[in-house]
């Protein structure tokens, strides 16, 4: 199960990077980046999974003194929560900049922004 999640995550990263690198429309590049972002989250959560264990919530399913033998790793989950929130912030920023570019230059084609090209 964790292998499926991990393979899907790696595939999403590759798809997202392919989209971000080949497309010329800035909005499509942003979509690519968010895809790669989701892939990273999937891989991280999959790394924290231990077969045969339950979620890191100490309810009636987990006796308190056996907690370390019963739950999966909670640290990647905490990391991914942070990563999702920061990823949302980055996406919002990218969209805001894309909007600003469109307003000033009337275009979303990356080939038309040549100032930083060498």
């Amino acid at each position: 199960m964790y292998l499926v999640a991990m393979a899907a995550g790696f595939l999403l990263i590759l798809m997202g990077l392919y989209g971000a690198l080949t497309h010329r429309n800035i909005l499509r590049m942003i979509v690519g980046f968010t895809l790669a972002d989701s892939g990273v989250h999937l891989v991280l959560v999959a790394v924290g999974y231990l077969p045969g264990r339950t979620a890191p919530i100490l309810d009636s399913a987990v006796p308190l003194d056996e907690a370390a033998q019963r739950i999966i790793d909670p640290v990647p989950q905490a990391l991914v929560l942070t990563a999702i929130v920061i990823g949302l912030g980055i996406t919002a920023l990218m969209l805001a900049y894309a909007y600003r570019l469109f307003r000033t230059r009337k275009s979303l084609d990356i080939a038309e922004f040549t100032e930083l090209k060498w």
């Binding site: 292998l3 370390a68 790793d73």
Partner: peptide, 20 residues
């Protein structure tokens, strides 16, 4: 990375501390 991956049998020290 993925083909050589085997999940841990038990929690690492930090995670075990949090769990206990």
């Amino acid at each position: 990375l993925g083909s050589g991956y085997t999940p841990d049998a038990e929690l690492n020290r930090t995670a075990a501390y949090y769990a206990q």
